[in-house]
């Protein structure tokens, strides 16, 4: 195993190629503002889904409060950039760090809980964060925080997505990540093999929250305006649905899931009255007919080890 394999070089070239291609298409106007808007939504959803997948898909910790980490990030960056006039890099950094701190604080007490109980506790945590936001005048209460400068652009979005995918997939393929997966599989056996399960569960929450915080910052600094209701229970569910639909424990699945569900959702904008009803039916059908998700726990690999185009689905 080496860093400079053909595969890694090809991947790097592809990553840069996509970046410049989109930049070019935006500059000549082929990618218009409507497509851009959707790209931002998809990108933010990818970050959210991949980071939740680390917590729920890989580590097996059922969380219904992921939107709260996003909210903390959004508000942190909003305050930094709109109220304190800091540059975006500061906003993003503070967003990520404060969200991961929240992940740590919620993680330490609640991770003694398992399964549904953990789910409900994280749901409660999310609602508490939302209610604090609703009642805090400094951040505008229920009206929300306005006049956030738009700093999120293609460069920020794209490289945040790439960094999320890069770091989380590195993590899950290291011994730390394997420890997390072993917790999902059998917590008692993992513990008996020397895995400090409490540490790894909290670590998964901290890393997941870190990226959710970044997603929040990208959101706040794109849409000018944030309010607590945006980050409620339903947002957490939306993220969870992407993860389950894509496949728990599959990073490529989360990416595919984010794209498909964002497309479905933007398509449903055409039926405003029945949008949510149709969405509910689609969710139900997915759960009945494809409960393991599009990808299962498999990953889609573009290049094989030698660097040739393989384009097939491989186990790990």
């Amino acid at each position: 195993m080496k860093i400079l394999t053909k595969k890694n070089i090809y991947t790097l070239v592809l990553v840069l190629l996509i970046y410049f291609l989109v930049l070019l298409l935006s500059n000549v106007g082929i990618i218009d503002s409507y497509i851009q808007l959707n790209m931002v939504i998809v990108g933010i959803n990818i970050i959210l889904a991949v980071s939740l997948n680390l917590i729920t898909g890989f580590t097996g910790q059922f969380s219904l409060g992921h939107a709260a980490f996003m909210a903390i990030g959004a508000y942190a960056s909003g305050i930094m950039t709109a109220k304190l006039g800091q540059p975006f890099i500061v906003g993003v950094a503070v967003a990520a760090l404060s969200a991961s701190l929240a992940g740590l604080l919620i993680g330490i007490p609640t991770l003694r809980l398992r399964g549904d109980y953990l789910a409900i506790a994280t749901l409660g945590f999310g609602e508490i964060i939302k209610i604090i936001g609703l009642n805090n005048d400094y951040v505008g209460g229920a009206i929300g925080l306005n006049d956030i400068p738009r700093y999120t652009n293609w460069t920020w979005l794209y490289f945040s997505v790439i960094a999320t995918i890069f770091i989380i997939s590195n993590f899950v393929k290291s011994y730390h990540g394997r420890a997390c997966i072993s917790i999902r599989e059998d917590e008692i056996a993992a513990e008996a093999m020397g895995v400090n399960t409490t540490y790894y569960k909290i670590l998964a929450f901290v890393i997941g929250a870190f990226f959710a915080g970044i997603a929040g910052a990208l959101y706040a600094n794109y849409f000018y305006f944030i309010k607590p209701d945006t980050f409620g229970f339903m947002k957490s569910i939306d993220i969870l649905v992407i993860v389950v639909f894509g496949g728990m424990g599959s990073i490529t699945g989360s990416i595919v899931g984010a794209v498909i569900l964002s497309v479905i959702s933007s398509f449903l904008q055409g039926f405003p009255e029945l949008r949510m009803v149709i969405y509910a039916v689609i969710l139900f059908l997915i759960m009945v007919y494809r409960p393991q998700g599009v990808m299962g726990d498999k990953e889609f690999k573009l290049f094989n080890k030698e660097g040739g185009l393989s384009g097939n689905v491989s186990s790990k």
Partner: peptide, 16 residues
């Protein structure tokens, strides 16, 4: 099916 899929189904019913 898995608990998580059942839970999402329940949420779908609720939205419906």
């Amino acid at each position: 099916s898995t608990r998580i899929a059942a839970l999402i189904t329940a949420i779908a019913v609720s939205m419906f």
